[in-house]
């Protein structure tokens, strides 16, 4: 058994107006990875490829030790998948869906399903068409969680939810990880959600992975430096700084590989460092995407 729940190498997929290019992704067993990208970045296509629902043109996909898409049936016994565009059968009750899943999965945990019904405020006898969007999402996730899968693949599961519902779902996702063998791949464009629960972060934009690493390392490496630049002084191009925005005497430098000597280097060049600030994941995401687009465009 290898150490990775998900392994993608050199994966490419071409559509008429969109290309997924050379995707390489590794999710270690027992960890949560947040896949962040703007709309149309390729998150859903990547997820569909690793679920075997879309076949890659090139490259290797390995999920829980199974080659995809060839071994998708064996792999999917241990994968719990939910996506934002997934709907349950309107005319049937949640109880019917629960029984349907029970008839397929021997691993179905009835006690846990009952607990989730209670925690999510759902009722088994309710028809799906009679419940709100938030409750539908929770119902879909209940059906995934109670199977106790080894790998959870969630494509934008919190989209369109109110803050309370989002909090409930994120709390449950964290609880699911109490089992150390379980892994989660969680795509979203809501960086707050990803920041809250992920161990690893992967940024994707325009069909390319632009960065992928440990969340703490990420937050630690990115910094914003607020500078005052006296007239006649030109800021040097320093390694680890990906962009500088200057308005008059005030400048903001964004570093993606911050080192403690960076403020001194600016001071030595004649600038004054007013502040060295941590960046939120959202700010890092935006800066990263803009930098990547500039690089590609250059």
């Amino acid at each position: 058994m290898n150490d990775y729940a998900i392994e993608l190498n050199g994966v490419c997929k071409s559509y008429r107006f969109f290309d997924l290019q050379n995707i390489a992704l590794r999710l270690q067993r027992g960890t949560i990875m947040g896949l962040i990208g703007p709309n149309g970045a390729g998150k859903s296509t990547t997820i569909r490829i690793l679920m075997g629902l879309v076949h890659q043109d090139r490259g290797e996909v390995n999920v829980l030790g199974h080659r995809m898409p060839e071994e998708q049936v064996s792999a999917k016994w241990d994968i719990g998948f939910a996506s934002e565009d997934m709907r349950l059968y309107d005319s049937m009750t949640l109880g019917w869906h629960i029984n349907f899943m029970k008839s397929i999965y021997a691993s179905w945990d009835d006690a846990y399903a009952q607990l989730l019904l209670k925690r999510f405020g759902l009722r088994a006898e309710q028809k799906i068409k009679g419940i709100s969007h938030g409750q539908r999402v929770k119902a879909a996730l209940l059906l995934v969680f109670a199977r106790r899968p080894k790998l959870l693949v969630l494509d934008e599961p919190t989209t369109g939810l109110d803050p309370v519902a989002r909090h409930e779902i994120l709390r449950e996702l964290t609880a699911v990880m109490a089992d150390e063998g379980r892994s989660i791949l969680f795509s979203s464009h809501n960086t707050q959600d990803v920041e809250q629960i992920s161990d690893q972060i992967t940024f994707i934009d325009r069909g390319r992975i632009i960065d992928s690493m440990d969340k703490e390392v990420y937050l630690d490496r990115w910094r914003r430096l607020r500078l005052e630049v006296p007239a006649g002084i030109e800021l040097p191009a320093l390694p680890g700084v990906i962009g500088i925005q200057q308005t008059g005497r005030l400048a903001v430098a964004i570093a993606n590989a911050f080192e403690s000597h960076l403020p001194n280097a600016y001071e030595n060049s004649g600038a004054r460092v007013h502040a060295v600030e941590n960046m939120t994941l959202e700010e890092i995401f935006v800066a990263n995407v803009e930098h990547s687009r500039e690089e590609v465009g250059a």
Binding site: M51, G52, L53, V73, K76, D85, M86, R87, Y89, D90
Partner: peptide
């Protein structure tokens, strides 16, 4: 049309099955 297909395809089944 009603987007219940992703739910079914999340089960251990291939497109041919």
């Amino acid at each position: 049309k009603k987007q219940t297909l992703p739910f079914i395809m999340s089960l251990p089944v291939s497109s041919s099955r």
